[in-house]
């Protein structure tokens, strides 16, 4: 009985925690960008502007939920929910600390990959349903980008799986007790992080929305809370990729014992989130075809090579 309750408590905490973090990131990002760009950022609502997110939320909930007349209504409504659902579901397999995991699946990584593949639908469907040329171009770009980066993402993780001998996330964390995976799997880490950027389509991989080219790309026609879902979905994606990087390559909750495991986890995760923000502040956007050829011609062979070498070394050591 009590175990069930604890489990439900964990589910609720993870769900609320992640959504809160994602929403809070809006503030964090705006503030950090401002710091790097010699301006103030939001600083009016509450001390240091920390209630800005709440103000934004109130605003966005009260906005007219408008659906343009020319769109494919049903798909238009469904599209933004997909990203929210798939990303939130992915958090189910993330072990935040010993025992704090929603679903300790033995195919954890595969579940994560499956969910992120489904996430691609959100862009494709939104772009298609909007019945707008800019959205369509954005959707096409997004589909191509996400499908190709999916491949390297999967491959880059296989090295980790080989080292741990398991798809289970908790096992992978435990396998890093001696040494974090980032050392033997450095190439895998780099590729995973790049693919993660592409999955969340953040600058420099924001090609599906490419503000200066496509206005807002696939979500040009969205407003109100439907737009809000894309927005929060993006931040959820950042949180997810940062959490996964922490778990897979940086030892998850592992760390010196003067801090509780969950704190170590959060510190690492936030460090990666800040890297995301920093990247956005500093890099330009490559062209769509450059991004694709870079992926297929450089990242894919590298990921394969990494997998091959890791496998060979593991076999040799046995």
């Amino acid at each position: 009985m009590s175990e069930t309750w604890i489990h439900i408590l964990i589910i609720v905490c993870v769900l609320l925690g992640m959504v809160t973090i994602a929403a809070g990131l809006i503030y964090v990002e705006r503030r950090m960008l401002a710091v790097w760009q010699e301006r103030y950022g939001p600083n009016r609502v509450g001390p240091f502007g920390i209630f800005q997110v709440m103000a934004d939320m109130v605003k966005i909930f009260f906005k007219e939920d408008w659906i343009p007349g020319f769109v494919d209504r049903k798909v238009f409504i469904v599209a933004p929910t997909i990203i929210m659902i798939t990303t939130l579901l992915s958090f189910a397999i993330v072990p935040f600390a010993p025992g704090i995991v929603v679903a300790n699946l033995n195919v954890g990584i595969l579940f994560f990959l499956a969910m992120s593949s489904l996430g691609a639908y959100t862009i494709v469907l939104a772009g298609w349903a909007s019945n707008n040329k800019y959205s369509l171009i954005g959707g096409l770009r997004g589909a191509a980008q996400m499908i190709s980066y999916e491949v390297f993402m999967g491959l880059s993780l296989m090295g980790v799986v080989i080292l741990a001998g398991s798809f289970n996330m908790t096992d992978i964390v435990m396998a890093q007790k001696g040494m974090w995976n980032v050392v033997p799997q450095f190439i895998g880490f780099v590729i995973f992080f790049i693919a993660g950027l592409a999955e969340t389509h953040r600058l420099p991989f924001d090609i599906p929305e490419a503000e200066s080219e496509l206005i807002a790309g696939f979500h040009s026609e969205y407003s109100g809370m439907k737009f809000g879902m894309f927005f929060v979905g993006e931040y959820l994606g950042i949180t997810l990729v940062s959490a996964m990087t922490t778990v897979l390559f940086f030892g998850g909750w592992l760390g010196p014992s003067f801090l509780p495991p969950i704190v170590w986890f959060l510190i690492k995760m936030f460090a990666f989130i800040l890297v995301f923000v920093l990247l956005r502040a500093s890099l330009p956007r490559p062209r769509y075809d450059q991004l694709m050829s870079w992926g297929w011609k450089i990242l894919l062979p590298l990921a394969l090579l990494n997998l091959l070498v890791t496998g060979a070394i593991v076999l040799y050591n046995q």
Binding site: L33, W36, Q37, E38, R39, L203, P204, D206, A210, E211, S212, R280, A281, S282, L283, P284, R285
Partner: peptide, 16 residues
């Protein structure tokens, strides 16, 4: 120009 190419920061710095 940098912003057209997706760079976010330079425009704030140059306007400063």
């Amino acid at each position: 120009f940098a912003q057209d190419l997706g760079m976010m920061t330079p425009v704030f710095l140059t306007f400063y």
